[in-house]
Nucleic acid binder design. Structure first.
Lengths: 250, 250
DNA sequence: GTCTATATTACGATAGAC
DNA sequence: GTCTATCGTAATATAGAC
């Protein structure tokens, strides 16, 4: 997860802010603080509602210092969003590995999605709502990531319908499932009535209910299925740029 | 729905932009065009991403002409949002009148919510996502309307749980139900696979499934219940400020 | 790597003529 | 009621010293 920090080291990137052709090394710490500040502020005030002065001040650097790490405000938004989508995708695929049963795949997908959104609400909100402020290639790239992620859900639902485990509720079902879980980023609080594992189970149950999941004429519940280990799950959805506390600079 | 337009007429307001102590009358047509332009642009680019020049140009008036109708950009956002919440609330209450059964109340609430969001996606997006750009009293006022609306849902679910018709899934269920239907504003297209009445029925079924709605040991479906007349429903959710087509000025 | 200082444009809002 | 013209500020981004 940590990037190399050797002088002159070429980073292959893929989610990080663009490497300029500079001979100097970059401070990993500063880069992280900038992304965290951007993540926090974009989620709190929106992309257009956030000024580069706000980001720089929150991160504790001068405005021009920011431009050593990112070529523009847009690039910071892209960096935050791409990290979210990358981790969401990779943690899903990793957790789905070796699971074939459609019902189990659905509750796993839901558990990853729920855990991610509860654990990284700020970053998730940015990726879900602010990414549309991007334009051109950046937006297209993010859109492809989103499509790929939704594709995994679509395949899982289709397989379940084919096997007769799920009712066929069309693509509407996928959109409804994703939307209801994504909303968690807006209201989840660590001191709420449910812990993250409990939230995963409840949303798993709701997903199975919503798809009318049944086997041998009996309705399925999460309780009947094998769930991923909660600790492992929480570890997999850990995102480094999620702001840990309200920044004191503000 | 139409406001009086007599010179010097005092408007009691309640959702409209503030009446200044002006002796001149206001053009209802211009006011509507301004709100429509604001609605369109706020939904497309976000509140902070929209300039007053954009709004004025789209509405076909000079920038200063706008300020004859609204004291600030904030006030326009408040006006749009308040109209959304007012209509959502009033159409729900009207359609719920004389319906006591919790399961029927749930599918009616869902039908109104779905129809509203499919029919007025731009306005709904503004009310759902941009209202947080408001500050102070304006924000508090809108928040109260939202709380009141969610309260109707909460009561309905609680009654259903009390009667043993719904499973108890806590407040999480309410949030999930609202969220999944609200998402319609993001993806619904009039030329999609489902018409609005069909969408209402499908979401009604999903809501019943999600709540595990059953009576006499048999799972409930919308098909088993009385639904409001689709035409009447669509008429009730008609919002005057929803932009009808993409503005040509842009 | 990070800073101070500044260029340049866009923003929200207003004054005052008609 | 709607316009043209403009004010003052804040925005993004860059130049160049250290």
């Amino acid at each position: 997860m940590a990037t190399t920090n050797q002088p002159g080291g070429q980073r292959t990137s893929g989610g990080r802010m663009k490497a300029k052709s500079s001979r100097r090394a970059r401070s990993v710490r500063t880069e992280l603080q900038l992304l965290r500040a951007a993540c926090w502020l974009f989620s709190e005030r929106g992309f257009h509602g956030t000024g580069i002065r706000d980001i720089a001040e929150t991160a504790g650097v001068a405005v021009s210092g920011m431009y050593y790490y990112a070529a523009s405000k847009d690039e910071m938004l892209e960096a935050v969003t791409r990290r979210v989508m990358d981790l969401l995708m990779s943690s899903s695929e990793e957790t789905l590995r070796d699971i074939d049963d459609p019902a189990e795949r659905l509750v796993v997908l839901m558990a990853v999605h729920v855990a991610f959104h509860a654990r990284n609400p700020r970053a998730a909100k940015v990726a879900d709502h602010e990414f549309q402020a991007l334009t051109g290639d950046a937006r297209e790239g993010i859109q492809q990531l989103r499509d790929a992620y939704e594709g995994v859900w679509a395949e899982t639902l289709r397989a379940g319908v084919r096997d007769g485990v799920f009712q066929d509720r069309g693509s509407v079902a996928r959109l409804a499932l994703l939307q209801m879980a994504t909303g968690i980023a807006h209201w989840y609080r660590p001191d709420g009535e449910l812990s993250i594992p409990q939230l995963c189970e409840r949303f798993g149950d709701m997903a199975l209910s919503l798809m009318g999941a049944s086997r041998a004429g009996r309705l399925l519940q999460v309780h009947d299925l094998t769930m991923p280990d909660p600790d492992l799950l929480l570890e997999r959805v850990e995102l480094s740029i999620e702001p840990r506390n309200e920044p004191s600079h503000t």
